[in-house]
Amino acid sequence: MMPLLKPRTGGLLSLMVILVVLPLFFRNAYHYDVAIQSGLNAIVCVGLNLLIGYTGQISLGHAGFFALGAYASAVLTDRYEFAAVGAMIIGAVAVGCLSYLIARPILKLKGHYLAMATLGLGIIISIILNQEEELTGGPDGMPVSSFSFFGWDISGNLTWYGIVALVLLFTVWLALNLVDSPVGRALRAVHGSELAASTMGVDTQRYKVLIFVFSAVLASIAGSIFAHYSGFVSPAEGEFFRSIEFVTMVVLGGMASIFGAVVGAAILTILPQLLASFHDYEMMVHGAVLMGVMIFMRRGLVPTLVHFIRGLRK
């Protein structure tokens, strides 16, 4: 097999090249904005894909973790004058603890019941963000100060793009290593057959919890970055539809494919922008595209493409 088709070396390298070359095509802040949003979504999706694609557990509540991270940064820096980095870390640790606490009982549930429980969790978070107006500004949201790092105020599109790109690369690298590690093999066993895996002595529960917490923390960090970048957060970030959107990105890109998650996130962030010119027909086309891709490429974009390219080489 060509080294370029090997995800750990070739894939990561290609992603790096793409991320470096991409800004050459950007002409304005709007282009950067779409790229940065795609990158942030991709960070969440890489984590979520480990959960959905490798352990076979579904979560319809990850937008809740994203929003918690975003609001931790917004509230702590704005209302309590925390340093941005500190707020981000506190947010990530808090989300980590919360997800760890609920992971064990909740991951005992199967299939749709797990989906329901995570969905409920996400909705509870979003209701709290909506109701605690004193703290969160309620449904209208709240402004967030810029990210200052040891006296350096991060601003400018290229800088933000660079930061998001670096975090994304690091996330992908981490995920690739995780998948190739003994943990990853155990995970695949869990996905194949949990019963068989546990009979063989794999502590399935432990790995599921680990991945759940990892993906929640990633979502929280992405949320924190988003809050400072966008300068404004609103409870819409934590809505049920956002969670669904994340899952859709993962499935569209291809389950159990780390790069699939990145591609899925990018496509579903860009798609609505392309469809904006359809005006009245925007929603219809959006829905039709989702259905079409899933019907014709049932394993998701990236696995289908890889399969196709391998087929050509034979």
């Binding site: 959905i52 669904i244 959006h286 049932r298």
Partner: peptide, 13 residues
Amino acid sequence: VSLIIITIGASIF
């Protein structure tokens, strides 16, 4: 999961 996404697409459509 992919059937679920199809029904979500249908709902938006």
